[in-house]
């Protein structure tokens, strides 16, 4: 019983980070209807960025989030102008291929630079012990920061002019253009934010687990599950979906071998797609 509770608690904490990662994917899709296949690679770059700041430069990992978010934004804006801008408005396959190509480039360069052997950021915080189980302090802080970053994004989208313009472009790009909103620039900003959030999620994950340049892939898949749970293009739903996915993982972990976790996750993904094609948290939304 205690092991289940501890596992669920840990699941919720890690799930908040899944949610943050998924927000990056969901934001980009919501604003420009592009499924960003560089998502996993960007999460992995976030992990290596954390390694660089902490293990090479000796920064505090949480302070490192600031340059990682800023750098992620710059990288995202660049990727938008290089690979995404010219395929906006053409078929969905074009943007899939464009982002997939960028993904392969990043993974290839990353493999050449860092190989695929695991890296580890040596960092720990005192945790909370409870009946022989310990929730690591890094998990608690990472989850809290994931929620804070998601909250900051919310404040940006709902309480700043540029953020509202992002939502306006998501809602009706043509009308936004008619109102004097430079829509391409707004798309670039949204893409930059999506990547910044993915990088931050990667950095937070790297404070918890070892990683390779390929590690982003499984978090990318989890992000897809989470966005389907939460409804594509719905950031608040993505965070809730992430926590739900973490709960499911935590719930099954004490009972099955770890290799069964993705089987259960993706079976659920398929079932939810069948039962609620618009996502679980779309219900009750005004449309």
């Amino acid at each position: 019983m205690y092991d289940l509770v501890a596992s669920l608690a840990s699941g919720v904490l890690v799930g908040a980070i899944y949610g943050l990662a998924a927000i990056g994917l969901s934001l980009i899709f919501g604003v420009m209807k592009v499924i960003n296949l560089t998502h996993g690679a960007m999460i992995a770059l976030g992990m290596f960025a954390l390694y660089f700041f902490v293990s090479v430069l000796g920064f505090n990992p949480y302070v490192s989030l600031l340059p990682i978010v800023a750098g992620g934004f710059v990288v995202g804006v660049m990727v938008y102008w290089i690979a995404v801008n010219r395929v906006i408005g053409s078929s969905d396959l074009m943007s899939l291929l464009a982002t997939f190509a960028m993904n392969m480039i990043i993974i290839g360069v990353g493999t050449a630079l860092w190989t695929t052997s695991p890296y580890n950021v040596d960092f720990s915080l005192p945790g909370i012990s409870w009946h022989g189980y310990t929730i690591p302090g890094t998990q608690i802080v990472a989850a809290a920061l994931a929620i804070v970053i998601a909250g900051l994004l919310y404040v940006f989208l709902y309480h700043t002019r540029t953020g509202k313009a992002v939502r306006a472009v998501a809602s009706n790009r043509q009308a936004a253009e008619l109102m004097g909103i430079p829509t391409r620039r707004i798309l670039a900003i949204a893409f930059g934010l999506g990547i910044a959030v993915a990088g931050a999620a990667g950095a937070l994950i790297a404070t918890l687990f070892p990683f390779t340049i390929l590690s982003g892939g499984s978090y990318e898949l989890k992000s897809f599950v989470v966005t389907v749970l939460g409804g594509l293009g719905n950031p608040a739903g993505a965070l809730a979906g992430g926590i739900l996915l973490g709960l499911i993982e935590g719930g099954v972990a004490p009972f099955v071998d770890v290799s069964w976790t993705p089987v259960i996750e993706f079976s659920l993904f398929v079932l939810i797609l069948i039962a609620f094609p618009a996502g679980l948290f779309r219900i009750g939304k005004n449309h």
Binding site: K164, R167, S171, A176, L178
Partner: peptide
């Protein structure tokens, strides 16, 4: 040079006030 397009083309998910605010973006 401002167009009110056919079929309104509002920002449907946004409030009245936000729609008006976006009108005044420039």
């Amino acid at each position: 040079l401002v167009l009110v397009p056919e079929g309104r083309q509002l920002f449907a998910d946004m409030s009245v006030e936000e729609n008006l605010e976006m009108g005044a973006f420039s």
